[in-house]
């Protein structure tokens, strides 16, 4: 059902928190996570529009890098945001920023669209799914803190390690393809990726050891 009144008003609490933030107007981390929660909690279309205006261009740029022509990319962009609307109820702000969650949806859509073989996915709604243990209050970082620590951890890597992570995690290239692109042996790509990932995990992934 259409609810035109809903399209005009923004959720109030988002404004309060965004303006209380530090002097980084570009950091929309908390604001965007709040908008995503508003979509989940009461189908807030205004919040959805804010998410689309912020992430839409970035998702489109990502999809273009992933190798689509403009027409296909616009279809995928639409599919991605339709999924954002539909699956918003599954978003957990303790586990991911809005950027990471939307990135994962866009990445999965582009993998489905651009590769020939299927790439099966697990299903959190499945009765045989093993749920996450409840996180302790202390170790759950606020969304903003986590986003900041990801940025800091990335900045602390060497340029070479960062480049491999970008090509692998963001551009979705295989180690073999990265080796050709950079003109280095596959073994070197693997060791850079492994070291970079371990450093990230040492900084960010405190839960990992506990979950093992």
């Amino acid at each position: 059902m259409k609810a035109p009144g809903n399209v005009i008003g923004f959720p109030r609490r988002s404004f309060g928190r965004a303006s209380a933030g530090r002097s980084e107007p570009a950091d929309a981390t908390d604001e965007m996570s709040d908008r995503l929660l508003a979509v989940a909690e009461h189908g807030d279309r205004a919040a959805f529009a804010v998410l689309f205006r912020h992430f839409g261009p970035r998702v489109r740029a990502y999809l273009l890098r992933a190798g689509g022509d403009a027409g296909r990319v616009d279809d995928l962009l639409q599919e991605t945001f339709a999924a954002v609307w539909r699956k918003a109820g599954q978003y957990d702000s303790r586990r991911a920023t809005a950027a990471a969650w939307i990135f994962a949806i866009a990445r999965n859509r582009s993998i489905d669209a651009f590769r020939r073989e299927r790439r099966p996915e697990f299903d959190r709604q499945d009765p045989a799914f093993q749920p996450d243990p409840q996180p302790d209050g202390e170790e759950t970082l606020a969304t903003r803190e986590r986003a900041e620590s990801v940025r800091a951890a990335l900045a602390a890597l060497s340029e070479e390690q960062r480049e491999v992570l970008r090509l692998s995690f963001y551009d979705g290239e295989s180690y073999a393809a990265i080796a050709i692109r950079l003109g280095i042996p596959v073994g070197t790509v693997k060791s850079r990726a492994r070291l970079a990932f371990r450093r990230l995990r040492a900084v960010l992934g405190g839960r990992r050891e506990e979950l093992r």
Partner: peptide, 21 residues
Amino acid sequence: PACRSDLELAEAVGGALMESD
């Protein structure tokens, strides 16, 4: 859950790179 948490770490990096674009 431990490997999902690692995958989420890779997605956090992807999200941060996308955000910075």
